[in-house]
Write a protein that binds this DNA or RNA. Structure first.
Lengths: 186, 186
DNA sequence: GCGCTATATGTAAATACTGACATATACTAC
DNA sequence: GTAGTATATGTCAGTATTTACATATAGCGC
């Protein structure tokens, strides 16, 4: 099974969801470090069902189209449990902005400085958003978010990764912009 | 043109290289935030030459197979210069380990703690390696590494991103492992 | 001589992912 | 009424990337 399958199982392990629900979640939460469009999710759900990792039931709704709510099976749970402790393949993060920084010495320094300040701002905003979520989680869910055996730990751990990531990213963008501005008017 | 094309142009803007050289570099340096195999690089070089962004000359070698050394053209340089200051599309980092952390509450805490400590160690080692490179760069190349209009800035900026990234990653892995161990023997 | 590694360049098949096409219900704002 | 948005589920074509296949030179150790 591929990574996307485990991403979906990870969400279904917490609550039963429809393909549409999963699509929404894959833009936030887990989606901060894994994303997928509905065109990937629906076929993957079919494959997971084929493999016996999930089942679905059709839920009829008034005033809305019917939906298929997917539930993780015992096999799905044990496969997920196994996967979690297997070492992941070495990860090479792909980041176009670092690539741009690599060639920034060729560019117009003012334009480039503007770009990196804007990016710094974007990451600062994302960081603020994450910090808000963290405060909310800690207040609403209490000490459970830090309990590694609680389902609340899932989102909290991912969130902490996001906070560290965004903090570092903002810092780096501003450093690049600083260097650019330092040599802008010599 | 796609991102890989600009990654290659970014390297060729500093020095002329063969496809094989580029393949080696795409495992390190720029490769820390962008990677590609030779099976992607050779066809892309052909496309770049088709578009007039690079040219090549065959260099005959004794005791080794002949090679094609690629050089960036004026068009290539100006395309690269333009691209650098264009805002990149929003980047969703994909990280399987964060996904695993998301489902870690289901796993055996001892196995999981071991995994996250190992990962922390890997990132600590990578960090040490980057720090070494940074010291070397600062000593060998002097103040130029901080000059945003110097070609030495390229690798130095990417390196600084790597250092911040690895520091943050190690910190997070250890935090996850701490939580796991805290509730291991209750 | 034989296997291993490094250098050197390519192609082809398979997989993963994105973007566009396709359809249907029903509420809301104009 | 009608245009837009949210809910809901799918497929398909194209792009990006990985893995495997394919070939050739030449040094090194056994």
């Amino acid at each position: 099974m591929k990574t996307l399958g485990y991403a979906i199982l990870g969400l279904l392990a917490q609550e039963s969801l429809s393909g549409y629900d999963l699509t929404q979640l894959m833009k936030g939460r887990v989606g901060n470090f894994w994303s997928a469009r509905h065109s990937q999710i629906y076929p993957e759900l079919a494959r997971l069902e084929d493999g016996g990792y999930v089942t679905h039931r059709v839920v009829e709704q008034r005033e809305r189209p019917d939906k298929k709510v997917y539930e993780i099976t015992a096999e799905g749970l044990s496969a997920l449990r196994e996967w979690v402790t297997q070492p992941p393949p070495p990860n090479v993060p792909r980041d176009e902005l670092v690539l741009k920084a690599y060639s920034v010495w060729l560019a117009d320094p003012e334009k480039a400085a503007r770009l990196f300040r804007e990016e710094a701002l974007r990451h600062k905003e994302q960081l603020a958003h994450y910090e808000e979520m963290r405060t909310w989680m800690e207040r609403e869910r209490g000490e459970d978010v830090r309990r590694a055996d609680s389902p609340w730990f899932a989102g909290y751990a991912a969130l902490r990764r996001g906070i560290i990531y965004e903090r570092g990213y903002e810092e780096w963008c501003n450093w690049v912009a600083d260097q650019l501005e330092k040599y802008m008017h010599p």
